[in-house]
Simulated scan of single mutants.
Amino acid sequence: MDLAGGVRDAETDHACAHLGKAIGVANLLRGTHAHSKQRRSYIPVDLCAKHGVSTEDVYRGNSTEALRNAVHEVASAAMAHLNTARGMRERIAAKCSRRVLSISRREDAATAAAVLLPAVGTGAYLDALEKRDFDVFDPGLIRGTMPLVTQARIGWNAYRGTY
């Protein structure tokens, strides 16, 4: 059975599943500013209630302490998934190197690494969010990173075989 990117490895598939969750959650946080203008919020209602976040504050773009606490919890869940996926890197690499190094196995290792490269951008966003005290309405986060910088990070990680 072919798994992620055509790689036949359950460990890589598991890492991709965790990475997909991290990317999805991070992208919803990243889109909070745009969603709030449409009077939508994807921050879980139970976390909003737990921290006393008013949905009107979210819709107005008011970065309150309560909202930052709720965002912190959501971002922590995303980072946990990202760290789990990254933690599997050594086992995936070891599996690929223990196999008979046929052309297809080397291709499997390269494909596995390439499939997991979206972790680079997600990790950079979550790190930037933490540096800005989990303020999803911070202008620097809304503006984002220059695409050339992101491409350079992805290229560097691809060269090093990390994600």
Rank of each mutant, 00 (worst) to 15 (best):
P139C: 05
A110N: 13
D9E: 07
G121P: 08
V74S: 14
A15G: 01
M146A: 13
R98H: 13
I23L: 03
V25G: 00
G31S: 13
Q38V: 00
I43A: 06
G87H: 04
A77K: 15
N62E: 01
R153W: 03
A94Y: 13
V7H: 15
H35L: 07
K50P: 01
G5V: 03
S104H: 11
A77L: 15
D108I: 02
C16I: 01
C16Q: 06
N69M: 09
G24Q: 03
A114G: 06
D2A: 12
L101A: 14
I23A: 04
D108A: 15
V7I: 15
N27K: 15
A66Q: 15
A119S: 02
R39E: 10
R30S: 02
E56T: 14
R160Q: 09
Y163E: 00
L19M: 05
A70Q: 07
T122Y: 10
R98C: 10
E65N: 07
A70D: 10
K50Q: 11
A10Y: 15
F134I: 01
H72D: 05
Y125V: 02
D133G: 00
E11Y: 06
Y125N: 01
G20N: 12
G5K: 12
T55V: 05
L101T: 11
S36K: 03
V115Q: 09
T55D: 08
A22Q: 15
G87Y: 13
A158T: 12
T111I: 04
E107C: 01
G61D: 11
H51S: 04
I154T: 15
Y59M: 06
H33E: 11
T32A: 14
A158H: 12
E11H: 06
A113S: 15
L28K: 02
S97K: 14
A80R: 08
A49V: 12
P118F: 03
H72C: 13
L126T: 05
R98Q: 13
C96S: 12
A85W: 13
K21M: 04
A94C: 12
H81W: 03
G155D: 11
H33R: 11
S104P: 05
D9C: 12
K37C: 03
A70T: 04
H51E: 05
S97R: 15
G144F: 11
A15F: 12
R132P: 01
T162H: 07
H81Q: 10
L28W: 07
